[in-house]
Design a protein around this nucleic acid. Structure first.
Lengths: 118, 118
DNA sequence: CCGCTGTATTAAGTATACTAATACAGCAGA
DNA sequence: TCTGCTGTATTAGTATACTTAATACAGCGG
């Protein structure tokens, strides 16, 4: 389900949280589904539980999951999930567009890229 | 000309090379202009010359400047500069667009962001 | 020759990110 | 209540990136 890439410069916890985000947003985990426990996922991936904990803490901080001590970590409401992810993507899109504007790229030049990608 | 932000998480050498890229691309430094010397810029910014050297080496590696031992570092051809920067921006734009597609954002949703930014 | 350029090397210090080990705290079923 | 699972907090070790420093070499030009 989750593939770690140790050659990737991104930290492991981020690879995990990003992958989980994606799975949740596309609906692979319905809302309120319990995620694998910190320790079991650690065993599955052969890494330290703290790294999983960090990934989960990040997901909770950002609002993707909610955690209950003694019970587990659970997927937040589907609608909220998507909104969060959309906001993330919009932000990066806006950054790129602003940079394009800053160096004087024309609307045509920008639109050409956009249209080629849909 | 260059403002360093020590609160920024980006390394200093990157802040410098990025700022110089921008200045060169918008034409603040015409092509073949000599950049400040490694040592003089280091004094201006009150940092170690090695950090400037790293910024310049990065710029040269990426093709934004060319350096001549004993003479200085010089701005590459204007056209080349812009192409390099455009390629960088396009790459980020494409990444963002692909992510948008991955989570199922509609064309309308994407276009709304794009239009609001021009 | 002298004083400026860029460049290379080596070392050290520092900060930060990442991972690990361990202990604590809450929940629920046997 | 005990046991075994959950999440969470604390602390420490490790690795890596970044920056600084000191020094040396090499090329250019007045």
């Amino acid at each position: 389900m989750i593939n770690l890439d140790y050659k990737d410069k991104r930290p492991i916890y981020e690879q995990i949280s990003d992958k989980l985000k994606e799975l949740m947003v596309i609906g692979a985990f319905p809302e309120n589904t319990r995620l694998p426990s910190v320790r079991s996922l650690a065993v599955d991936l052969s890494i330290n539980p703290n790294t999983i904990q960090r990934a989960y803490a990040e997901l909770e901080r950002q609002g993707y999951v909610y955690s209950i001590k003694g019970k587990g970590s659970f997927v937040a409401e589907t609608e909220k999930l998507r909104d969060l992810k959309v906001d993330e993507i919009k932000e990066r899109l806006i950054e790129a567009l602003d940079n394009a504007k800053k160096i004087g790229m024309s609307d045509e030049e920008i639109m050409k890229v956009v249209k080629n990608r849909r």
